[in-house]
Every structure is written in C-alpha cells, then in structure tokens.
Design a protein around this nucleic acid. Structure first.
Lengths: 140, 140
DNA sequence: TTCCTAATGCAACCGAGTTGCATTTTGAGG
DNA sequence: CCTCAAAATGCAACTCGGTTGCATTAGGAA
C-alpha cells in the first residue's frame, strides 16, 4: 500500500485522515474523477465540503490537475508522484452518457495565438461523445 | 436593421418576438454570450426560461454555436447568416475576471486521437486567463 | 501537557440550469 | 375575418454542483 502521507508531506500538506482518503480515492479511480465520484468511492465517510476543499488543495499542491467537462463538473486526476512537470497538458475525453472522463495521453495541447495583452493562465481541450461501452449500449 | 425574422424562418423556426429579441441580442453582443449576458441585454423583457429555451433552439437550428467556459456557463454565439459550415470550430478565450469570452478566429481545432470505439460528438478548446482590460486593471 | 493554528463538519446559502403546467400567441384552414 | 389545435411563453418550484460562515475538533510545535 502506497504511503499517501509521505506524498502529502513532500508536497507541503499536513497529512490528515481526510486528505489521505481523498488522495487514495483519486489514485484508485485512476482517471479524472468528479467530486461525486470521489464521494461515492468514500461512501460518505467524509463531509462533502471536506472533499471539495481537499480536492482543491491537492490541485494547488500540484498533486492533481483538474479539468472541467462540458457537463460543468470539475474532475480531478492524481498525478503519479514521480511524474515531473504539469501532467494535465493533454486533451481529455468526456462520455456524455456515463460521465466518465479519460486522459488522452501522448498528445499535447496545441499552441494558441491570443490577442495582444491577453494573459493566459491555462487551457483545456475537451472531446466529448460516447465511450465504447455507452456507444455499444445505444445500438442495442 | 437586419430582418431577424427572415433568418429565423429560413432556419425553420417560427419567428416570434422573443426569438427575434434573443437572436438580435446575440448579434449585437457580437461574441459568445452567456444566458446572463443575454438577459441583461434584454433588460428583463423576457422570462429567463424563455431565453434558455430559445438559446437552445437557435443552437439546434444552427444559427448559433455554444461553448462552455471553465466557469461552467454556456455561451452562445450567433453565426453570420452567410457563413457556411460550423463556425464554432475554433478555440475560445475566457476572461476569468470579467467573464467575457471571445472567439479566436483563424485557428482551427487540432485533430485528436481517441481510443477505439469512442464516438466523438464534439470538442472544444478553451484558453482562459485575463483579457487586456482586466490584466491592466490588476497591475494598478 | 499546553495552546495556537489548521482542518473538519454542519447548516445554510448561491446561482445556473431544468421541469411541469397553465396561459397566451401563432398561423393554417375554413 | 373567425376557429382551433399546436407551439411558445411565463411562472413557480425544483435540482444540483459548488461555496461560505462558523462552531468544534485534531495536529504538532513549544
């Protein structure tokens, strides 16, 4: 079992039970997970607000990156602690039917020209549609 | 004054006062506008629900395209009636401070490889940060 | 052990978007 | 110019993801 507390401490975060649980849930899910998915994985053992705050904290501490799907929900994806740089710099796919999001690794986001004076803080490329499972279910 | 009713009819939509007002507001704003921006432009002359429904209808009728900003709000942008094809196929910039979104014309969305079996229905590339005005204001 | 700070839980709130339904408007047919 | 069914609108209530304020609890340095 991975020592999540070590990871939390090395990122400058106080290792608490809640924090450990949230980070563990993200690792276990293994793809960008919404607050709801994390809450479900933790079976109500934590308050919703605590989950929200810790997801936000993990992202601030660069232990996870976040992407928003076209359903308006933010999803958080835990980084492999050995990965260097911002691992969120790739497109994501969102299934509109089941709500699962997956990272499209191995591809990078294109450079985008912006008007003079614009200060870019980030960008995200979201592809949406039906995942293989949901696509198959629809045809039946 | 443009004849919005003509445009509506040619798109197969019944030309009503509300429809004309919403389409006119989108043209006047000239950039992707959220429901709130449209409502403000119309100064409460229409019910919020009517605006929502007509924005959705305009998009279905291909008179506008919609993009979602990282603030979770959908924004609708009226097409020039003479433009052919889907005019939403370009990146968008969202100012996190004032909430204004602008189309980054002249650039196209990259091709994205997706896993086998995935059915793509659309994609969007959103760049976010501070627009020139807000960027300037922050420095003061 | 003490004590201050950070973290958590709880309740209430916010705002974008949606739904159901009664009322009004539209326009085709007479 | 009427009639009438279908479409559009307005209103109220609701859903749900996310946020805020505040009292309580846990963490960890002295």
């Amino acid at each position: 079992m991975t020592d999540y507390n070590k990871i939390l401490e090395s990122a400058g975060l106080r290792p608490t039970d809640a924090r450990e649980a949230v980070l563990g849930a993200l690792y276990r899910i293994g793809r960008p997970a919404s607050h709801g998915e994390v809450a479900e994985a933790l079976k109500g053992q934590l308050d919703r607000v605590t989950i929200y705050r810790n997801l936000y904290l993990l992202e601030e501490a660069r232990l996870a990156h976040k992407v928003q799907g076209v359903d308006g929900k933010w999803r958080f994806c835990a980084h492999d602690p050995d990965v260097v740089g911002c691992p969120g710099d790739h497109p994501h796919f969102l299934c509109l039917s089941c709500g699962k999001m997956i990272c499209l690794l191995g591809q990078t986001l294109p450079h985008v020209d912006v008007p003079d004076g614009v200060k870019v803080q980030g960008k995200q490329l979201v592809v949406y549609g039906l995942c293989p499972e949901c696509s198959r279910d629809r045809q039946k």
